[in-house]
Amino acid sequence: MKEEYREENTTSSRIEGRHSVLEALRAGSLIERLFVQKGCQDGPVLTILREAKKADVMVDFVPKERLDFMSETKNHQGVVAVLSAFAYSTIDDMFALAEKKGETPFFFILDGIEDPHNLGAIIRTANLAGAHGVILPKRRAAGLTATVVKASAGAIHYTPVAKVTNIVSTIEQLKEKGMWFVCADMDGELMYRQNLTGPIGLVIGNEGKGVSRLVKE
């Protein structure tokens, strides 16, 4: 059975071809994700992979058919890079925003939100709820693509979004800064009965699996 691919419509934020992708990496372009054809291990591709590692860019090795589907030029040469549609902030930026407003820090921590429309909606909700930022994991999660920016309905311009390597270690580091954490969970207690004052991080899990076991622990 032929595998079907469904990509969000962000072709304008893609770079195709080995030379173009390599130069984008060397120029420090905000690359969200790099897709490389499975089995490609020649010199130019290995150079691209080394540059991607230096830039801490997530790499997906995919079948040629997926790259063909993604490609606008139909000359991807086994490499397609998706650019971030918006610049990421840092967690320090979020603390600075809270301090500027004279408020205790309030962050959303997203544990594997995959749908870009959902991510955009959550960023919008975080802004309306007065959150000082949204934290995403680098892997197995949606990033700041054009669809996310559009779905946020402008909230992305007022709500810092940071990307971290590990959600668990980030939570531990934020605990050391005095933050407490609550987790949105179907088996939890009614939120209106909780004391949610003070510096709080709200953890929201994946659309299907919910919050991962390690994060809950």
Rank of each mutant, 00 (worst) to 15 (best):
E3T: 14
Y5V: 13
N9F: 14
N9T: 05
T10D: 02
T10W: 07
T10F: 02
T11Y: 06
R14V: 07
R14H: 03
I15C: 01
G17M: 03
R18Y: 07
H19Y: 09
V21G: 04
V21S: 01
L25E: 00
L25V: 03
R26Y: 01
R26F: 03
A27L: 00
G28V: 01
S29E: 06
I31R: 09
F35C: 06
Q41H: 10
V45H: 00
I48V: 02
A52Y: 02
A52L: 01
K54T: 02
D56M: 03
D60R: 00
P63L: 09
E65A: 15
R66K: 12
L67A: 04
D68C: 07
F69H: 15
F69S: 14
S71V: 00
N75W: 03
N75T: 04
S84Y: 02
S84D: 08
A87N: 10
A87D: 12
T90E: 09
T90V: 11
I91F: 06
D92L: 09
D92F: 09
A96D: 13
A96H: 04
L97R: 07
L97D: 01
L97V: 10
K100F: 07
K101I: 03
K101G: 07
G102E: 13
E103W: 08
T104D: 12
P105C: 03
F106G: 04
D111N: 08
E114H: 10
D115H: 11
H117C: 14
G120N: 05
I122G: 04
I123A: 02
N127M: 04
N127F: 12
L128M: 14
A129F: 15
I135H: 10
L136S: 04
R140Q: 04
A141E: 10
G143S: 07
G143W: 08
T145L: 11
K150Q: 12
S152N: 00
S152I: 11
S152W: 11
A155Y: 04
H157N: 15
P160C: 15
P160Y: 06
P160R: 13
V161K: 11
A162V: 06
N166G: 02
V168G: 06
S169Q: 15
T170P: 06
I171K: 05
E172S: 04
G178Q: 04
W180D: 09
W180L: 13
F181H: 04
V182T: 05
D187M: 15
G188S: 10
E189M: 15
L190M: 03
L190R: 01
M191S: 07
M191T: 02
Y192M: 15
Y192A: 12
Q194E: 05
N195S: 14
T197A: 09
T197Q: 10
G201S: 14
V203I: 01
V203E: 14
I204S: 11
I204F: 13
G205A: 07
G205D: 14
G205K: 08
N206T: 01
L214P: 11
E217H: 13
